[in-house]
Amino acid sequence: MYAYNPLLLRIGVPGLLLYTRARQLRHVAKDPSNITFFTHTRAAITLLAERLMRHLTPKVLSNSQVSDRYFEMDFEWPHNAPPPSPGSFFTVRVSESEIPLLRRPFAFSGFSRGNSTASMLYERRGTATRQLTTRSPGETIDILAPLGVPFPLPRSETLPVLIAGGIGMGPIFYLAAELHSSGQEAVLIVGARTAGIVPDRTEFQLVETILATDDGSAGCHGTVTDALQNRPDLLDRRLEYFACGPLPMLRAVHQHAKARNECCWVSVEQTMGCAVGACMGCAVRVRGPAEYARVCTEGPVFDSEEIVWT
C-alpha cells in the first residue's frame, strides 16, 4: 500500500473493491469479455477521480535546471486541495497571452504532504516549456489539478518494476518515492538517450536503480527491456510493471509483460484539449466497443492489456 493515497481515501471501500476485483478477475481469466467489465470499472474510477479536480493558483517555490534537458519546478500545495497520487497530472496555463494557447499537461514528479509541496519534472522542448523555465519563486501558476486516474497499488505478491523513459521519469520517480516510504520493495529502471539528461535523484539511493542509455554513456548500453533481460535474478520473480515513457518503450514493456503473463500498467501521453474529459481530443485506442478512451480522465494510466498497440 502507498503510505498515503488520497484517491483511495476518497473513492471509498466500494470503489477500491471494484478496482481490485476487476484486476483479480482479469488475471483469473484472460478472456475478451473481461474488457467489458474493465470498461465499466474504468468508468467508475474515472467518475471518482474527476471529483478531485480543482482550479488552483499555487506559488512557485523553486524552478531550476536539473540535467542537460530537464527542469524541475516545486510549488506550494494548497491545504484545501485534494493531494495528487503517482500517475496523476495537472495542466498549467503557461501564458496569459494567446501563444501558447492551450494549457499544457504535466505529471507530478513528487509530492510532500509534510511540506505541502508538489513538483513537476519537465523538458525544455518548445515555446510553452521555454516560458515555464522563466517562472521565479514567489510567482503563482494557474493549474487544474489533480487530474486523471493514477497508478494502482502493486499487488502484494509481486515485485513492482518501475520503468521510466525520457521525461516519463517524473511520475515514476514519484511512484518510487511513495513505494519506498511505505516500505514496499521495488526496482527502478531508468532509460534515456544519454547519461546527461538523467537528473541526480534521491530516489536512486532509496530504491534499487538500473540505468539504461541508448548511447551507453551510463549503465546498460541499450533499452530498458535489455536492462531487464540482463537481470536473471529479477526475472525469476513474479513482477508487476509500472511504466511511463515514449510509446515504443511502453510497447516493448507491454510485450515483455505479456510474454510472461504479468500485469503491466502504462501511463500514456497524448495532445490534450480540455484535459477534463469534455473535448474527446486526447484519445487512445483501446479494446472494447468504445474503441477509444480519453487519456485525461480514463487514463493516463491504463492496464497495458486494454490498449490497442499499433
Binding site: 485506442r285 468504445a290 474503441e291
Partner: peptide, 18 residues
C-alpha cells in the same frame, strides 16, 4: 461514434486545429 483517428488535435498560432 468512436471518433476519428489519433492524434485529433494540434495547436497552431493562437488557434486549435481539431
Amino acid at each position: 461514434r468512436p471518433g476519428n483517428e489519433i492524434p485529433r488535435i494540434v495547436e497552431t498560432t493562437a488557434g486549435l486545429l481539431n
